[in-house]
Design a protein around this nucleic acid. Structure first.
Lengths: 200, 200
DNA sequence: GTCTATAGGACGATAGAC
DNA sequence: GTCTATCGTCCTATAGAC
């Protein structure tokens, strides 16, 4: 794959670092971590490979730095603005709809890192547990809070994959709104212990 | 990564081919297509790399052959046994729960192939459209059949990812049953007018 | 902070013998 | 149907100059 080669120039370390992480994000989103080459990242930054390695130490180091960077950005993005589950989901979906590149980055890395040997494996295991804990806490008043949290996470992940693959411009927010109507339905039959009319 | 090296032996072409696809499935499930090396596949089969290439032509050829093989297996697996949406989903989930390797294979390839340059990109676009069409048809009596189909697919995909990442042995079937209770909830406000009380 | 130069492999693929 | 031998390319990483 062709990667546009930037002109070389001397940059302050912090700025260069930001540039590197940005370029790497885009490339990993396209080809995954296994498919990423340091040469392409370097070219995209107007650096040579050793120049790049000076900043991130190693290829794995680059990945870790990128994930930490994203976490920091995310944390900055929602502070603790929203305290109800449905509102938080809506906010997440709205933000994601605006940055498909990042969503794809995480979709690809998240699947790739299912392999225990993947350098981001532990990160994504922790991330999933974390998300589940947080959403379960927010879902608390509901019956089966953990199940609801799991389903909400699964639905967001699954819809995002569909959305990313759809050529035509499907609307992620609309997809989610429709799903939320189902997930958060107030159904007397589900609150009652007897489960009238349910299968099983 | 270390790949067990099999002893060399001469095999009939058809049998060798089956072996190659099996070994490749396992390796791609672990490292994705970009992370796959023909050397590892060859080692896993007790072949040299040129010996392997004699059978599959190229690395891309190997991937295509594998996807076609899986499609054939799947087609054989369900003929057209189930004709209601909920029953079909249950059957799918039950089968998937029994073969996590295959599920991971598709999870990884499906994410990797979001990139338009990926050799399986078109395959997965078509596959998604196909699944959506089929499930939408099965959901037809319901209001918003397409939305329901999308949500069902998203939920299955999402729950599978969670299940694959969970260290402890979560039960995929149980996860799905719980989600199905929500997705297929019989809600008068959302049910199609003509079909009161029926599921299908 | 970035370079040149280079080490040392792994990669996919081909040619041609058996 | 499988081999040996080899090509040319790409890879990550290091050493040391500026």
């Amino acid at each position: 794959m062709h990667v546009a080669r930037r002109e070389r120039s001397r940059l302050p370390a912090a700025e260069r670092r930001r540039q590197i992480l940005e370029v790497a994000s885009g490339l990993i989103a396209e080809r995954g971590f296994w498919g990423l080459s340091m040469q392409d990242v370097a070219d995209g930054c107007g650096l040579t490979v050793p120049g790049l390695l000076h900043h991130v130490g190693s290829k794995d180091g680059l990945l870790i730095a990128m994930l930490e960077h994203r976490d920091a950005e995310d944390a900055r993005a929602w502070g603790d603005s929203v305290h109800d589950l449905r509102g938080l989901c809506a906010a997440i979906v709205r933000r994601n709809a605006a940055q498909p590149e990042i969503v794809r980055l995480f979709a690809v890395l998240s699947a790739e890192s299912l392999a225990p040997e993947h350098p981001a494996h532990d990160y994504f295991v922790a991330r999933q547990q974390d998300a589940l804990d947080k959403l379960t806490r927010l879902a608390k008043p509901a019956r089966d809070a953990e199940q609801l949290a799991r389903q909400v996470i699964a639905m967001m992940d699954g819809l995002q994959l569909q959305w990313l693959r759809d050529q035509a411009g499907t609307d992620l927010v609309a997809l989610w709104e429709s799903a939320a109507e189902t997930l958060f339905v107030v159904d007397p039959a589900r609150r009652a212990p007897a489960r009238i009319g349910s299968r099983r």
